[in-house]
Design a protein around this nucleic acid. Structure first.
Length: 270
DNA sequence: AATGCGGGCAACCGCGGCTGA
DNA sequence: ATCAGCCGCGGTTGCCCGCAT
């Protein structure tokens, strides 16, 4: 919509994503996970660089993204967090379920910055806020400490990120980290939540199948780390590629099994 | 109706950090 | 200790759209 599609010198597409490209990327990541962004476009049948794919997924295609207007609560939260964190959009986004850093950054520059100039918020309550970042007196390790705290907020269930009422009313359950890639360990739970979206009912069924048959999906290193596919699904793909293909037809240009998957399979007990 | 202009936002670019060899 | 590859982040760009004139 924004940038005119073109090709760079390597023959990779740039610019606006087409619905077809979106469909391919979404289908591929949903099925295989983002095991390697650099290699992913090749196997997904996309003439895009990995960076572009990652960005598109993170900012647009991820199922847990909340779109639409910002609530007053969200805007106030952004302003407060920006006061204390500065332009660390990813850290701010981590506290706002369903919002991406890019989206927040855009909203800040286009709307909030002007408004904030006219009506600055008091900073005291921000610094006193237990949910906010720790402002160190010496200031020397502030960066590290903020990072540690943010990580703590993301992981520790007793210190949840800011959950806004408007977020709770959205279709997906509030999760602890809506900003991270689905491949990160700390986001396994949120990944499960994210795929509970209406568009992903089929995948939810796959999770349930895996959990019922093979224990906890979210503690299993390979599947939890890099793949949305259940072990049953994977086994059927490996043992009976034709049967698997019949059940889950490949997309145009898609390759059945990415590199790395076979290596990971060796460690599994069938 | 035509034109100009600014806002909004998707996407690109480049840098820095992390990790493994 | 060094280097290369990859990923994530923040800054910036550039086009579309709606509104004002």
């Amino acid at each position: 919509m924004v940038r005119t599609p073109c090709c760079d010198k390597n023959g990779l597409r740039k610019g606006t994503w087409t619905p077809e490209e979106d469909r391919k990327l979404k289908a591929y990541v949903t099925r295989y996970g983002c095991w390697n962004w650099r290699q992913l476009p090749k196997y997904a049948g996309l003439a895009r660089c990995g960076k572009s794919c990652r960005l598109r997924w993170m900012n647009y295609l991820r199922p847990d993204i909340k779109r639409g207007n910002y609530s007053k609560e969200e805007e106030e939260a952004i302003i407060r967090f920006h006061e204390s964190l500065g332009n660390r959009w990813s850290a701010i986004a981590a506290q706002l379920p369903g919002r991406t850093d890019n989206e927040i950054k855009n909203h800040w520059h286009t709307t909030l910055k002007k408004r904030f100039k006219h009506k600055p918020l008091a900073t005291k309550d921000v610094k006193d806020n237990s949910q906010g970042p720790v402002i160190l007196e010496d200031g020397t390790s502030k960066e590290k400490e903020e990072t540690k705290l943010n990580n703590h907020l993301l992981i520790n269930p007793t210190s949840p990120p800011l959950i806004l009422e408007s977020s709770l009313s959205s279709q997906q359950p509030a999760s602890s980290d809506q900003n991270s890639s689905i491949t990160t360990d700390s986001t396994l739970a949120s990944s499960k939540d994210s795929v509970s979206d209406n568009n992903y009912n089929n995948n939810t069924a796959l999770f349930d199948t895996y959990e019922a048959n093979s224990g906890n999906f979210w503690t299993e290193p390979f599947f939890g780390d890099s793949c949305y596919m259940s072990s049953d699904m994977l086994v059927s793909m490996m043992m009976d590629p034709a049967g698997y293909e019949a059940e889950f037809p490949l997309l145009e240009g898609e390759i059945l099994c990415p590199f790395g998957l076979y290596d990971q399979l060796e460690g599994l007990n069938f």
